[in-house]
Design a protein around this nucleic acid. Structure first.
Lengths: 152, 152
DNA sequence: ATCAAAGTTTACAGTAATTCTCAATAAAAA
DNA sequence: TTTTTATTGAGAATTACTGTAAACTTTGAT
């Protein structure tokens, strides 16, 4: 089974945000990257994350952190861990739970998701050939849907 | 659209525009030329393009730039690249033999272009299946390059 | 129960990328 | 040429977002 081997990247995050009419911001990218670079098995509270990012030279306000870890949890990108202590911890939801590609009408933004093992295979092969370690690959198809194509 | 052999020239641009009841304006010609003269592998945001044209002595208003890069993307002349920066980038959408995809290191941003007939085929099939008119399909692979993977 | 501190959410004013409005202009057709 | 109508530039409008600060809400201790 090939599906489910990919990691979230800024690109896949952007794709999923855009699909819902939301935006990829520097802050969201930084937060995702922080979780991706976290050693396996580690997890962070909101306050932990604020400190970590501050130390890295990327200070992000606590409210933005709260807003976005909540958002990413709802999107399935992060998992909320409930420890008895009363404050939540978060970690990346690995592997990428619902890996898919996008067919988008550039006029009306209608978006169709589709899965493809072939694409993933091609991605693996290309990455390997260049000696890269694959994280994610996404096919984005830009097109015009029937109604939009019909009109001039 | 993706299968032609030639690059767009002002002449073919005019033909395609007129065919749809649109006009060739100096601004559109300038924008197309700017993209044609862009070094291989480069791409521009709307703001980049405005600055470039300004420096060249061809200032074009930002709204006109936005209007026309959108139009040209819909015509299949430009392709919209979604690198995760919060704003879109554009490059010429080159027809089949030069049509390419991107392999990007998420850490150092090293980018490798590669070609793939299989991806193009998958894109065509998916678009057809949904009854969409294909404009562009791009596989974006995110990975770690050897040096970046070696380091923690 | 009551209180303080920690943890989380909300209100609000300002920001950035993009789109829209509209009077003036200029391609293309007649 | 003249007419028709798409297009332009300037600035306003739009929209999701952010940081600051104030307002809740738990939780644990008294």
């Amino acid at each position: 089974m090939l599906t489910g081997q990919c990691m979230y990247t800024s690109h896949s995050l952007k794709a999923e945000l855009n699909e819902r009419g939301w935006r990829l911001t520097p802050q969201r990218e930084i937060i995702l990257t922080a979780f991706r670079n976290l050693p396996k098995g580690q997890h962070l509270s909101a306050e932990d994350l604020r400190e970590l990012l501050s130390q890295q030279g990327n200070p992000i306000s606590l409210s933005t952190i709260y807003r976005n870890i909540k958002l990413m949890s709802h999107m399935g990108i992060l998992r909320e861990l409930e420890f008895a202590e009363g404050h939540k911890h978060y970690e990346l939801n690995q592997p990428y739970p619902n890996h898919h590609h996008h067919l988008i009408c550039v006029k009306c933004n209608q978006t169709i998701e589709f899965k493809s093992d072939s694409v993933l295979k091609i991605g693996k092969t290309e990455a390997q050939q260049a000696g890269f370690h694959l994280l994610d690959c996404q096919l984005t198809i830009h097109a015009l849907c029937p109604p939009c194509h019909g009109l001039a």
